[in-house]
């Protein structure tokens, strides 16, 4: 485990695109930036409704242990995800990003907690609340050390057919801008 070891968790409820977020971030860090990655997804009944998550470890060296030990970054797209998935995170240096409209109570002891109305931005920018996860990816590319903004943007676009690029680009850039405004 090197200095560059970085652990991320993307939590929400079924249908919010948490699995896709893991895929995109793994692609950004692993393929675009050439890091080592381990991507983990919750499978089975857990993934169908209720809280669900995907998790990503990035490192410049081989990742030996395929599970998070102390997340450096957590995204919570629902209150249940925030309640379920933040207990083990790094309180001091870790970053928590929540959807401001869907998560009302965040753990008080997390020093770097950011609330962005991800779903509202999605609705306003693209008219499609489903793009909230792409808004979140934009924000994550600014707030986390998982992968840089260009890499994540490229990874997002590689996931969608050409005709959806404009919409997703809009969502992504809005998320990144919202995050930058908080820093």
């Amino acid at each position: 485990m090197s200095e560059q070891h970085y652990e991320m968790r993307f939590g929400g409820s079924g249908g919010q695109g948490m699995m896709l977020m893991g895929d995109v971030m793994a692609q950004a860090a692993g393929i675009q930036e050439g890091k080592e990655v381990v991507l983990l997804k919750s499978y089975g009944p857990e993934a169908r409704g209720g809280a669900c998550r995907s998790e990503l470890i990035t490192d410049t060296e081989a990742v030996n242990y395929p599970a998070l030990t102390r997340p450096d970054f957590v995204l919570a797209m629902s209150q249940l995800a925030c309640d379920s998935y933040t207990a083990d995170m790094d309180r001091e240096n870790g970053v928590l990003l929540t959807d401001a409209e869907l998560v009302h109570t965040v753990p008080a002891d997390v020093k770097h907690a950011y609330a962005i109305p991800l779903t509202r931005i999605a609705r306003e920018e693209t008219g499609r609340p489903i793009t909230a996860n792409v808004v979140a990816l934009g924000a994550i590319s600014v707030l986390s050390r998982g992968a840089g903004e260009d890499a994540v943007r490229a990874a997002v676009l590689s996931r969608f057919p050409e005709k959806l690029h404009a919409m997703n680009l809009k969502a992504f850039n809005a998320g990144a801008a919202a995050a930058r405004a908080l820093l």
């Binding site: 793994a26 692993g30 393929i31 080592e36 381990v38 991507l39 983990l40």
Partner: peptide, 9 residues
């Protein structure tokens, strides 16, 4: 089960 479902490069 873990190797089966985890992703790596």
């Amino acid at each position: 089960a873990t190797l089966a479902h985890m992703s790596e490069k």
